[in-house]
Write a protein that binds this DNA or RNA. Structure first.
Lengths: 344, 344
DNA sequence: AATAGTTTTGCAAACGTTTTCATTTAAACC
DNA sequence: GGTTTAAATGAAAACGTTTGCAAAACTATT
């Protein structure tokens, strides 16, 4: 071993092997045009031979960017976030950055901790989900001056840049669709809105629209279910298995809607004749399920891509200041909804 | 600003503010027991006031661990990987590590690049999916001496540590189940096995079991579909929409199976009377879909957890050398399979 | 053959920590 | 109160890079 009894070769080892100075080696990586082709070749050979891999940590210490972006999500294991994370990560990668990811399980206190942790790693930029965060989290971000983008929710007056949709609008659109079809007896199944502004806003939008059209929802038709097919299926079983039941169910997201479809099928209900089911999100498979699910499309992929583009631009100084990007929602009328057939 | 016209306060700023030496500040973080409580309090106050956040990069330079583990996956946006990633990440977090993630889209060349990239970031350990990797990738890992664990596949003689299942066995079990029910006309829908040893092994196991029981599968009953409900549904539509069709379809994974269920439903076929459908994986929702899907359970969560535990142990020196951990598979007989009812 | 200009290279300081070793301060003992 | 021992602190080197500046080595021009 020509390496000084260390495990990993460093730039000095390379310099020695190539018989040039350290600076030349460094330059050969960072400003190849400044070093003579012959020398460069010698260096490359040395790198190859020694298996040298640059040490980002040392570069960071020198004030260079770390080349990492931190992403903090409630959970990775979730159809819609997974799609988002994938496109976010892909776009980051395309632009030469790597993603550091942390999940907090819908716990805003933990989210704060995760943000700190990522900052210790000197991420160049941060992204998190939604606009509801602890004061401490916002304070931290502002104090540290780390470029940050909030994903998923849109608000014109957000404290940080955001790329997302108006979730209240999504709720309104979903309700509107059912209203337009003539439904008056609507059941609601949403996730717990605590620390989840997406769910909260959707629910509020839904209630608003329903209320302003004179529709009132009995308390026992308003269910709460976590983000899980199994739980949603279970939760609405009792609601559906009664003579007096809603003609339509509006779900806080497509996963819940999927659970409801299965529950209805299980009970032998015909969709949409006996029951209309409305989702929000348009997750993968929502168009293929039988019957295909009517839903409000949220363009996860595009949101992820734009968010990544935005954060990289902020980091590289190609844009600055707080900006808000609104992504369009659209109604997808598929086979799970229709006019109510039962006469009251 | 008391900070020397820099954006982020460093340990020196803290030392000044607390009127102690740099060493004391550092010690107060790393060996709190070695510094007088009163001093520690003074330091903590200074940290608080200045908003100091430790710089991992500088620590890494000093030979400390980076506290990061790199995970390289084909794709994040995939039910089963998402579950795995989540549990892997959670366990890592529990043990004080952060996950750096990269995806390569089933491209082994890109995988190599991702591994390199993560090594530049000086991850303490690495994890990737399956045991099929480019020679370059294996060489890199061995040369750099970065602790690595292969997830998902088990092989007693693997080049690196692994935590996973025997995918060939999964294929065999699935086929066995269909055989046991009395099926002789079986259709196969699997993902493309190139660069995907999980799919490859499952398919091989399946074919083996079928073959050794004298079952032959016509070429046009062997379909290939990517990991996608929509594509799987589309792909098998033609296969199913014929008078002469298999009595059972065995799918390379549950997502494909889900697509097949929808296709069958769409065509008005009764499951399992007209068609038995068998999956592999046991993804979320597989037990709730109507009819619930018979499948081979692969314990993704447990695999992720064990893999994380293993890599951390390797990194912290609590274990070393190559080890192979086999996770158990189990047959889940649910409602999508039954004995064939049609008489030939 | 000498000069001016250009290209290529090297030296050394700086980045923010940790840690060894030495020194100071406090506590404990007779 | 002086000595011994233990606890707390500080000074400085080291980690692996990058980069401004200066020196050296070429090229081109006369």
């Amino acid at each position: 071993m020509s390496l000084n009894h260390k495990d990993k070769p460093d730039i000095i080892d390379v310099a020695k092997a190539a018989r040039v100075s350290i600076s030349t080696v460094s330059r050969s990586f960072n400003h190849p045009d400044l070093v003579k082709p012959a020398t460069r070749k010698r260096i490359d050979r040395a790198v190859q031979k020694l298996g040298y891999i640059r040490n980002r940590a040392a570069q960071v210490m020198h004030g260079k960017r770390s080349g990492t972006i931190g992403l903090v999500v409630p959970t990775i294991d979730n159809a819609i976030f997974a799609e988002l994370i994938q496109s976010f990560s892909d776009e980051l990668d395309r632009r030469g950055f790597t993603m550091l990811i942390a999940s907090h399980g819908f716990d805003l206190e933990r989210e704060y901790l995760m943000l700190r942790k990522l900052m210790e790693h000197r991420v160049d930029g941060l992204a998190f989900i939604g606009l509801e965060h602890s004061d401490a989290a916002y304070a931290l971000i502002e104090q540290q001056g780390v470029p940050t983008v909030a994903i998923w929710n849109y608000a014109a007056d957000a404290r940080v840049s955001c790329v997302g949709v108006e979730n209240a609008e999504a709720g309104r659109l979903a309700a509107r669709h059912l209203l337009d079809l003539g439904h008056k007896d609507v059941g609601l199944i949403f996730p717990n809105p605590t620390g989840n502004d997406r769910a909260h806003d959707r629910l509020q939008g839904t209630l608003e629209e329903l209320d302003s059209n004179g529709i009132e929802i009995p308390q026992n038709w308003r269910l709460e279910a976590p983000y899980s097919i199994a739980d949603a299926k279970r939760a609405c079983m009792s609601l559906l298995d009664q003579p007096r039941r809603p003609t339509a169910i509006l779900c806080g997201n497509d996963i819940i809607a999927q659970g409801v479809i299965y529950a209805a099928k299980h009970l032998g209900l015909k969709i949409p004749q006996d029951l209309s089911i409305m989702g929000i999100g348009d997750f993968k498979g929502s168009g293929e399920i039988e019957p295909s699910l009517s839903t409000i499309r949220i363009p996860a992929k595009s949101i992820g891509l734009q968010a990544a583009a935005h954060i990289v631009d902020s980091v590289t100084g190609q844009s600055n200041g707080v900006s808000a990007t609104k992504c369009a929602l659209s109604l997808l009328e598929r086979d799970s909804t229709a006019a109510p057939s039962r006469l009251e």
